[in-house]
Design a protein around this nucleic acid. Sequence first.
DNA 1: TAGCTTGTATTTTTT
DNA 2: ATACAAGCTA
Length: 772
Amino acid sequence: MQNSILDSLNPAQRAGVEATHGPVLVIAGAGSGKTRMLTARIAHLMADKGVPGQHILAVTFTNKAAAEMRERVTRALGLDPEALTPPPFFASSAAMFSQPTIGTFHAVCARILRREIERTPFTKQFVIYDDSDQLSLVKDCFSRLGLSDKAFSPKSFQWAINSAKCSALEPHEMPAEGYDYFAKNLAKIYALYQQELFKANAVDFGEMITLTYRMLRDNADLLAKYRKLFQFIHVDEYQDTNRAQYLLVKLLAAGHRNICVVGDEDQSIYKWRGADIRNILDFEKDYPEARVVKLEQNYRSTKNIIGASSKLISNNTERKAKTLWTGNEAGSLIRRFQVSDERAEAELVVGKLKQACESEGFSFNDVAVFYRTNAQSRVFEDILRRERAPYKIVGGLRFYDRKEIKDVMAYFRVLVNPEDSVSFARVINVPQRGIGKTTVDKIDEVAVARGLTFEAAMYQAAQGQGGALSAAPRKKISEFLALIADLRGLLATKTLSEFYHELLDRTRYVQELKVENTEESAARIENLQELSSTITEFESGAGAEERPALETLPVFLENVALVGERAEEDQGVAGSVSLMTLHMSKGLEFPLVFMVGMEEGLFPSVRGDDGGSDEDIEEERRLCYVGMTRAMKQLYMSHAVCRRLYGNILYNEPARFFGEIPGEFIEFKDLARFNRGGVSGYARDEGDDDGAECSYSHAPVGPASALGAGSSQIGRPGGSQIGRRVRHSVYGEGVIRGVEGGSSDAAKVTVEFSGRMTKKFILKFANLEYLS
DNA sequence: TAGCTTGTATTTTTT
DNA sequence: ATACAAGCTA
C-alpha cells in the first residue's frame, strides 16, 4: 500500500512527499512533476500516515489547478470520483470541512467567511464584487470626492486600492504624505471605498483574503480552531503569493509549522498583480528549520528546449541556483524566423502548423501560439479561419463577463442582497424603462444625504420625499420597485431554474433583445439560454432541484463569483489550435509551440520612460522562460521587421533574448530580406521552401543594431527611420537623426532642420509628413 | 432621456 | 485600428 503511492516518484519527489512534518520548500522546475509530488504527498499523509483528510489544506491559485489536484488525490487514494468535491455551502456546517480542503485562496477564504461572517462587519447575505463591480464603486467614490481631475482615472485608483489590499494595507496605513496629488487622495478614496463596500454588504476579491486574515488575527478562538483544523498546509505556486496571502498562510501555520510550499521563482510572472517573489526566496528565513527539496528533472521537453531555456533564465539575478535537466531526446533545434510584418508572421505560423498536422503526425490539439498581448491574436485568427484550421482563443472574454449575463447576475444579487448599490445601479434601467442618469443621481443624493441604502432611497424618492423628483420618474421607480418585490416573492416558491425564466419574462429582458433583432442580440439570447442550462446543471450538481431559489440562489452566486466558467470541452475530433497570451500558457504544455512577436518593445514589453528597469526585464525573461518550457517537442520563435499595432507602424529590433540563447540550440532564418530603407519590397515568402530562405550563423539580435537604441516608432506609411526626410508643419523639411523610446506613447524623434537646428518631438504629437 | 459625436487610452489576469 | 466612455444636442 505504502509503495503504490511512492513507487512512481523520483528520489527528489519522494523526499518532498516523505517530509510530512515541519516546513518544506519544494523548488519545482518547469515540467518537473510538482503536481504529481503534491498529490502524492496528500495521498501519503492520508493513506500511509493516517492523517484524517479534514486536517489537510491545499491552496492553489486557479480553480483548474484545484480541480486537477482533487482529481489526482482521489485517484491516488482509489476513492469515489466525487469524494473530494467540496459540498455546497448550504450543506451543514460540519460537512463543510469534512474532507481535505483543496481550493483556491479565494474559495477557501469564502468558506471560512461564510461560516464566521458574524465576526466581521458584514452579514451573511454578503455578495462578492468582481472587477467591474469594484470599478463602479470606485467611480462612485471618485465623483463623491469631487475628483473629476483628468490627471488620474478611477481605474488607476482601483488599481492602487487593489495593490494596497495585496499588501494587506488598510486605508489608515496608507502613506498620506502631501506632495503627490495621487497619494494624497488615495488614502481618502480607499477609506471611502471601504466604507461603501461595507454599506453594500459586498466583499471584493482582495478583501476576501485580508478580511479572513484580520478576522483570524483578531479572534484568538477562531485562529485556534482553524489551526487545529488545518494541520497540514500546502501552497501551490508559492512564487505567486502576495503579501496578504503570505501573512494568512503564515498565521495559520504558526503553531504546528507543517507547511509545504511549492513553487519556482523562475516562473513568477505576476509581480504586476501583487505577487511577491521574496515570499519564496525568503522562505528559509521565515522557517530556518525548513527542508529544501529541488525537483530538477524535467519530464516534458527535449534537451534543446531545456538547454536553451536554462541558458536564458540564467541571465536573471533574482533566483536560486537550479539546474534543470532531462532524460528526453535532444530533439530538433529551436527555429527562429524573421518575417517582414505581422501578416507574414501569421502566414508563416499557420503554414508551418498545417504542415506539421498534415505530414508530421501532430494534431491541431498539439499546437499552441503564444503572444504577449491580446491585440496580436487577430491576424492569427484571420489566417487560421482562411486556411480552415480549427482554433480556439484561450482566456478571451469569459462567459460571466458578458453584458447580458452580468445583467442577470446583477438582478440576482439585488434580490439576495438589498444593500447592493452597484447592482441596483446596473439594472435600474435595463432593459430601458425611462429611468435615466439624472434620476439615478438624485436617488444617490438622497441615499448619501440620509445615509440610506440605494433601495431605501428609491422608496423615499418614489414617495416624493427629499428630492425634486417629478411625478413621471416617481411612477417609473415605483414600478421598478414593485417588480423587484414581486421577484423576491417568487424566490420562496420557485426553483432557481423556474425563477430564472420568470425573471427574464417579467423584466422583459429577452423580449427587448428580440425587438433589436440583430446578430448581436441573437447571440445574447443564446447566451441567456446557455445560462439556463448552466443553472439546471448547477441545481442537479448541488442536489438542489427541489429546493427553493431562496436557498439555491446565494450558493449559485457564490459559485459564479469564485468558480466562474466551467471549462469548455474541446470541440471536434481533431481538436483545435490554441491561441493565448504567454501569461495564460503557464501550467500548460503543448508538443508544438509558436512564440510570436518577439521584438523589443513588444516582448520584452518596455513601458515607462525608464526604458524598462532590470526588474521588469527579469520578469519578461521569466515570461519567455515560461513560454519556452511549455513546448514538448518543437519550438518556433518569430519576430517581424515591421508591425502594425494600435494604428501605427513599429519597426522593432529582435528581442534581446535571442542573444541569450546559444547557437547550439537554435537556428535562424530570415524571411524578410531586411531592407534598410523601410521601403516595400520584402520577399513574399510562403514559407516552406528552404532554398529561398537566408540563414545566418550570426543572427542579428537585440537592441544593438543599425537603428540605435531600442526600437523606432512610425506614424505614417514608410515610417520614420534614421536618415528619413520629413516635413514638420512649423519647422519645415528636415532629416531624422535619432529615434528613442520603445513604447509607442513615449517614442521621441530627433529631427535636424536646415541650419543644423535640431528639435526633439514626441512622435505621437509631431505630425510629421514623410518625404520620399 | 437617449442617441450621436467626439475624445482617449491600449501589457499581462485570477479570483 | 478600435473600442469604450464621457460630453453634447434633438
